[in-house]
Design a protein around this nucleic acid. Structure first.
Lengths: 197, 197
DNA sequence: AATAAATTTGAACACCGTTCAATTTTTTTC
DNA sequence: GAAAAAAATTGAACGGTGTTCAAATTTATT
């Protein structure tokens, strides 16, 4: 822990805490203790804890993007979209605590305006889907296609908050992945049907 | 404020605070001051603040259900579904702070199991849509129809969290209502298309 | 070695939910 | 109506939270 990477060190330690103990465990004092410094040092690196959490969340979104980018295209653009969905669901389920924190903060902070950096990351994730999406719906007008894509992503992103919790287990007998696949493919089928008019 | 309706009085005052100042303003001490009692009295009526917030949320869900039930059917079941959506969006937008608290708590508490009373209210809202939904998709097998209905409701409910915030304003040029209508109708079109196979 | 700059520290502040012995109010009994 | 018993209310106190900032320490410069 040299002085030029304290920031990264704190982020790494904070990530550990969230992964192992949950987002609620991430407090200034606990982070300080885990990192072997005082609370003041944290506030030297980050304006406040919300900013720290935001920095963690940016990392999480970057990891998601990296994870999705690693996926190779399937035989059809349609199948590729499903592959991205699989990757998305898998990422959320294997990073439950991090994703929960992301969403929790998202909701908390979004009362005000969301930071540009955060919105940029969200857009970046959409951009990964876009080529496949555009190929499947190349005969839809760009404006509408763009909107449809955003609404689809918004739906999946919204529903993903429930993937980190037990709610869906109580309400439904099918798996979380099945729910997401049903949502995706019904929506895509709807777009396909509507474009024929 | 007689002793047999302290509970209701506290809930009413709490509601006022949330509506006018936001969910973050609802603390034990502020509620006590606004209600003209001490914090102890609140804890006499509610085991903890989470339970209090839950009680508020149950009220909110009941109000939503009441508001939807007031809507008369449209000329077709399909249009009726859209009417319910309108009512839902309108309710959320005109009760932003209450809905935000509902969702915020939902997420917070759902790390554990959600209370039966809460799940019952959610089911109650779905039940309002069901007749219209079943009429539109009467030739889908009951099992799949039920699942599709739940996934649709889950999507709308999830997305609704964003209706209370400014996120959608930043990402999109269209109105929030348009987004929800697009989601609903594309999904319904998808179901219609898929059932023909 | 002495000075200057930068960094780290952690007690202190104002909040938060929550508890519970002591007080006040209400009810019951005589 | 007075006295005793039961019930309800109170609010200081506890341990926790984010955050601040003067003082101590470390690092860099002269």
């Amino acid at each position: 822990m040299t002085k030029d990477n304290i920031r990264e060190y704190l982020l790494a330690k904070g990530r550990e805490l969230v992964v192992s103990q949950g987002a609620a465990f991430l407090t200034a004092r606990k982070l300080a203790e885990a990192s072997g410094c005082s609370v003041g040092t944290i506030y030297n690196q980050f304006a406040n804890m919300d900013n720290f959490i935001m920095a963690e969340n940016l990392q999480t979104l970057d990891e998601l993007a990296g994870s999705l980018r690693k996926l190779s295209p399937d035989s059809s653009a349609y199948k590729t979209l499903n592959r991205y969905l699989d990757g998305f669901v898998r990422f959320v389920l294997s990073n439950r605590n991090l994703w929960f924190m992301l969403y929790h903060f998202h909701l908390q902070a979004s009362v005000k305006k969301l930071p540009r950096a955060y919105l940029r990351r969200l857009v970046r994730v959409i951009e990964i889907w876009r080529p496949a999406f555009e190929e499947v719906f190349k005969d839809i007008r760009p404006r509408e296609r763009r909107l449809s894509m955003q609404v689809l992503w918004l739906s999946l992103f919204s529903v993903s908050s429930f993937l980190t919790t037990r709610v869906l287990d109580d309400m439904n007998s099918v798996s979380k992945k099945t729910i997401c696949k049903l949502l995706l493919n019904t929506y895509l089928a709807g777009l396909t049907a509507l474009k024929k008019d």
